[in-house]
Amino acid sequence: MSVEAVQAFGQKEVLTKKEYKPYIVRTNRHGLVRFAIHAGALMASGAAVYASLGTWWIVPSMACHAILMAFLFAPVHECSHRTAFRNRTLNEAVYWIVCLVYMVPPTFFRYAHATHHTYTQVRGWDPDMLPENMTLRDYVLFVLGTTFWRRNFRWLLFHPFGRIDPKQRYYLPDSEIPKVIREARIIMLIYAGVAAAAVYYGSWAPLIYWIVPRFVGEPYMRWLRISEHGDCEESPDLRRNTRTTMTNRLVRCFFWEMPYHAEHHLCPLVPFHALSRLHEKIRDKLHPVGDGYLAVNRQVVGNILSPGSGAMGLDESGRTAGQRSA
């Protein structure tokens, strides 16, 4: 199949360039406010973890802290697109910080994610596709984060030694390989430094406030992210291969509006804070639109258990109940 045949399309079909332009305006203010909210919430949840050490309250406080940690994927993603902030230096600085905490290599992730955007939902090209003919076991392992961590650990452990998976080489121009390797070595040194400092001072802090919540929270993020393309058409048509999932304001806040995922894929230049406005503009041209993460995952599991049971309440034209009644 030619490269042209598999590259994602659909933006021109929903929006002219003139219509698109007002939505792409970037600011520093929106990103700074959202980052402050996110960082502040993490500090508060970290304080709650500290206060609840040795009690049963550790369970809800750690759960909360872990979920907020998992939501750091949102600023990682937004900064990778350089849409979090208008100022590029600020964008890259925040990007590095969140990537370090979230444990993804910044440059390599940027290229991997760009590849996902180029070849969305085209099997064999899209690095983020769910397993083919997904079984219940595949679903559970995916949600638990086994695929995510296996991939990330390979990046973090092998890249410092110049070993880039040959199946992932097509993400990267040759000229960027030295940078990816150098960056991986810097990250490894930083992590080694944190570990050494923890051992030296006899501190469990990195484990309690970072590592453990980082692992505990990731299944929630995986569960959310299944709805982005799960049970969507396997084709390059961005109007059909990506799902926007309607959800509450709290999730949208910490997810940096990523539930508007179809809008994001169709118009990746649009910063997070304009996605809801864009949704209002193009909602009638999208399908599917999910009626919540629980509903979408219920449908995905339903289709695994009873193949062909149908997409999530969509009618023949692909509309949900909410869209039909609108």
Binding site: T118, P268, L269
Partner: peptide, 16 residues
Amino acid sequence: ADGFVMDGFIECPLHQ
């Protein structure tokens, strides 16, 4: 041409 001119730069519409 599907991208946008910003501050003397052209930004690619696909990957920025």
